[in-house]
């Protein structure tokens, strides 16, 4: 079975977190997932901003991106839950809402684009779990991360709205936990596990974003974990980059490292953490030392 997809990194991963794409690509190469770039793709665009301001423009831009994959005869694969949400939802909405499909079709005609709705969208974690499989991943582990306790944070848009998205159960997901546990780490349960990290809210109102993040960190700290594991670039940036501001606002200490899920897979598959070139605002050196990876 060959797995071939049209690759849609999205703006965050492509230009602000290229190390995430590097890490994901290493895992895709390892498991024979073939990808090809989508020429001329733009921002998906992000629903929290574009759908909120104009739903028609949101769907038009999404349909244009999907049409590129249609021209390649492939489904879309993305590392970003935001892109996954937008592209998969847009296809679902345009299938059921004829009036909207008409408006979008009219706008696309002006730039010479035809949208057919033939390409679906998947998040990489979904392909790893559903197509590659936990067994194959477990077999590839050469350096089990035994003793590592992590809090898995799904983020919202890998899961919801389940009316359009089908990655996992929208309120009690398991797939990302199992991917992480394949490395030998333990996924610890905690309160507010499927709650939002506050990233999108923080873009609109910084204080709200920081307060929501504190709510998450408070419960994660109680679970006594070594790290948080995420599969969303926006959650990564917010949970890692804004922890110092939570500590400042609430006069509490957290400093919980935030890891990308394929970063963890790569460590367990023998890749040197330094070669992945990640940036972690919350330093991960003590963690690497504990795992003997320095």
């Amino acid at each position: 079975m060959t797995l071939k997809y049209a690759w849609f990194p999205g703006c965050w991963v492509a230009y602000r977190m290229p190390y995430v794409e590097k890490s994901d690509r290493l895992v895709m190469e390892r498991f024979g997932i073939e990808i090809e770039e989508m020429k001329g793709a733009t921002c998906c665009p992000e629903a929290q901003f574009m759908e909120a301001v104009d739903r028609r423009a949101w769907l038009t831009l999404a349909a244009r991106n999907i049409s590129i994959a249609e021209g390649m005869g492939r489904d879309i694969l993305t590392p970003c839950p935001g892109c996954y949400e937008t592209l998969k939802m847009a296809r679902g909405i345009l299938k059921e809402d004829e009036e909207m499909a008409g408006i979008v079709g009219e706008a696309l005609k002006k730039i010479g684009v035809v949208y057919r709705g033939t390409s679906d969208t998947t998040h990489l974690a979904g392909v790893l779990y559903d197509k590659v499989g936990i067994e194959a991943i477990r077999k590839a582990i050469v350096r089990p991360l035994t003793g590592l306790r992590v809090a898995v944070h799904y983020g919202c848009h890998l899961l919801r709205p389940s009316k359009y998205l089908d990655f996992d159960d929208p309120t009690s997901p398991r797939k990302l936990d199992e991917l992480v546990e394949a490395t030998g780490a333990v996924s610890v349960n905690y309160m507010r596990k499927t709650m939002c990290c506050g990233g999108p809210a923080g873009v609109v109102d910084r204080e709200i974003g920081i307060k929501i993040l504190r709510e998450k960190l408070y419960w994660i700290k109680k679970a006594k974990v070594d790290a948080i594991v995420v599969a969303c670039p926006s959650c990564y940036m917010h949970m890692d980059g804004n922890q110092p501001y939570v500590e400042e606002m609430f006069e509490e200490k957290y400093s919980i490292p935030v890891l990308w899920y394929t970063e963890l897979l790569n460590w367990a598959m023998g890749v040197d953490p330094k070669d992945l070139k990640f940036y972690h605002r919350v330093r991960i050196d003590p963690l690497l030392e504990k795992l003997g990876l320095t």
Binding site: Y15, R16, M17, P18, C43, D54
Partner: peptide, 22 residues
């Protein structure tokens, strides 16, 4: 701002300089 970026450049987020932990 993000809507403007998307219309002008195609991307909502600007390209940023990225530094590693090293």
């Amino acid at each position: 701002e993000m809507v403007k970026n998307a219309i002008e450049t195609g991307y909502m987020q600007g390209i940023m300089e990225v530094m590693t932990n090293e």
